[in-house]
């Protein structure tokens, strides 16, 4: 299967640095903010953003955690692929500025489920969305990112894959045709 690489590791790194700076611009010292990675694919992006904020920009007290939305999806018993639940952290969101972090924004249904799921922990002050890839013209719901890495146009029969390589750090984003 041929891969059409749209972002290489250097480009991803530049984008992540920019996204981190945009977050700092809006959240300053993050004392009333929490970054929430959406399981499973948002976990790696969250880790990279946290790494940049703490190591490069010395944000000392950063609140972050993971949220799983499996039980809040709108396709339970409708999807042939059975989804396994993942871990959710004990998230302190009451009155906080929440930033959802996910790798690819496609239909928006994951974000809708996350909006329901996060409220089970409390009532956030506001919620923003950060995504590395924004698939334009593919939304099923009125949801848009506040922080976007790269906006791309992809056909319905294509899939965008974000490959986080933990060992070599040779991250890349590519497009493949669905089988």
């Amino acid at each position: 299967m041929s891969k059409n690489i749209i972002l290489n590791d250097k480009e991803i790194d530049i984008i992540l640095q920019r996204l981190a700076c945009q977050l700092i611009e809006n959240h300053q010292d993050f004392s009333n903010s929490i970054l929430i990675g959406l399981q499973p694919r948002g976990k790696s992006l969250l880790n990279r953003i946290v790494q940049i904020l703490t190591q490069t920009y010395n944000i000392s007290e950063l609140n972050y955690g993971l949220l799983d939305i499996t039980f809040y999806r709108d396709d339970f018993r409708r999807n042939e692929k059975i989804l396994e639940a993942n871990t959710t952290d004990n998230l302190q969101v009451e009155g906080k500025n929440v930033v959802f972090i996910d790798d690819v924004l496609f239909t928006g249904r994951t974000i809708r489920a996350a909006l329901t799921a996060v409220e089970t922990f409390g009532r956030p002050s506001n919620i923003e969305l950060l995504t590395l890839i924004d698939r334009r013209f593919s939304r099923h719901l009125p949801i848009q990112p506040d922080y976007r890495g790269r906006q791309i146009d992809v056909y319905d029969n294509q899939k965008v894959v974000v490959d986080w390589d933990k060992e070599t750090r040779k991250d890349c984003v590519y497009i493949i045709n669905k089988v």
Partner: peptide, 22 residues
């Protein structure tokens, strides 16, 4: 394993998930 996840859910302030609403 699934019960582990539900045990975490029922310790939140809102203990309900919408999965079986139909």
């Amino acid at each position: 394993k699934t019960a582990d996840h539900f045990k975490e859910v029922i310790n939140r302030s809102i203990k309900k998930v919408p999965s079986l609403r139909d």
